[in-house]
Nucleic acid binder design. Structure first.
Lengths: 215, 215
DNA sequence: GGCGTATCGAGAATGTGTTATCGATATTTT
DNA sequence: AAAATATCGATAACACATTCTCGATACGCC
């Protein structure tokens, strides 16, 4: 009866940040409450679906009024583990790695990239947006000592698997993979893959269809 | 009878690049044919699912043998519109924009980012990985004259909607949105959103669950 | 050359996510 | 104060994606 939250579906989880962002904007305007139809109109979703997603996090709302925005934000933060800031290591201080290091928004989601790691001697010893770039072979020792649980992979495809293996050995529990490769890791490791090619495939196939139709 | 390909499901479309990549690697080793179970084993998928996805593109295979890799690659390319290189404009020459401009892999998928656009006078006139950075207000004219159909949005959230509006007015048909905002565009515009926060939400919620379980 | 086996292709069954329906409840209005 | 209405919460129907099952076919083996 204590842990009433059952495992959530991935589509639902992916929608929560959109609710979170929208509610945070509303909160800045001084609003106190928000309803499912309100969120749904703004995000072009089904009101029932929004309600189901929010129910997942344990939120309760009042009929005719909605949810208090403060509780809702706290509920989503808690459900997604964004309450306590968690440290992360980033492997691959290239263009994409620099972009992620420089993105200020992650702080809002409890993610703190504390250091980058790279093989390139020219990069080692420099800093990237205020965080140090260290030699890759220092990752295991530091990850263990600092209890870092999240590893971000932004190395080229050819190096991705070996970096992932290194992270697993270092006690990393979750890997956020930006390389265009499927990584093989033990089942106990959380693996989330941001596939640009998958996204591009949806875009180009639809575009091809659209252009063909209007030819 | 001519257009036998029915509209594909998004999950299937997203898997196709993985097949494509794997088959291309196989082709480099000299292999001529590949079977669905073979692909499925490698990518940890169900063989039937792979077969259905490939059937979607119009491919036909031979029992006991599989598909000829050459035909399969061509089939996926054709289905995803990767046969002819299509030009794209990128708006927002920041960290992320630079990363996308510098990614060489897009050429394999028929995507060619020909120019970047930015508001920052300090960036205008410079080049990024060999491509020019131009003033944002030149986008409409150039997009029309060069018949560019794809726009990539890598500007901050606050500027994303206005950039998208500009792209729509410029005749852009498809928008690849990397900003952490939902964009409002006409239904006729193809819109693909790469949401880092959605991906992060899946990662952190699972990690929180995993850490709680092993507490 | 016939037989066993692995794979394809199509249809059915299962599971999951989304959308619709309905009663309950709190606020507003008269 | 009572009626009307909008929203919540739960259940049910639907649609879609995945997985299973089966017959057909082509290659290797005896």
């Amino acid at each position: 009866m204590s842990d009433e939250l059952k495992t959530a579906s991935i589509p639902s989880l992916r929608r929560l940040p959109a609710y979170y962002r929208f509610c945070k904007q509303l909160a800045e305007t001084g609003r106190q409450v928000v309803s499912c139809p309100h969120i749904a109109r703004e995000l072009h979703l089904d009101p029932t679906q929004v309600r189901k997603d929010l129910a997942m996090t344990g939120m309760v709302g009042k009929p005719r009024v909605g949810y208090t925005i403060g509780e809702l934000l706290a509920g989503i933060e808690g459900y997604l583990g964004w309450t306590n800031t968690t440290d992360a290591f980033l492997a691959g201080a290239g263009n994409l790695g620099a972009a992620l290091m420089g993105y200020p928004g992650f702080a809002d989601y409890g993610l703190n990239i504390v250091a980058a790691f790279d093989e390139d001697p020219a990069k080692i010893g420099t800093t990237l947006h205020g965080r140090p770039v260290l030699a890759m072979d220092r990752l295991p020792d530091l990850a263990e000592r600092m209890h870092v649980h999240i590893g971000i992979v932004t190395v080229p495809a050819s190096a991705a698997q070996s970096v992932a293996d290194l992270m697993v050995l270092s006690g990393i529990r979750a890997i956020w993979n930006f390389s265009p490769t499927r990584l093989d890791v033990p089942d106990s490791i959380i693996l989330e893959h941001v596939s640009l090619t998958a996204s591009l495939a949806v875009l180009t196939s639809r575009l091809a269809e659209s252009l063909k139709r209007s030819s």
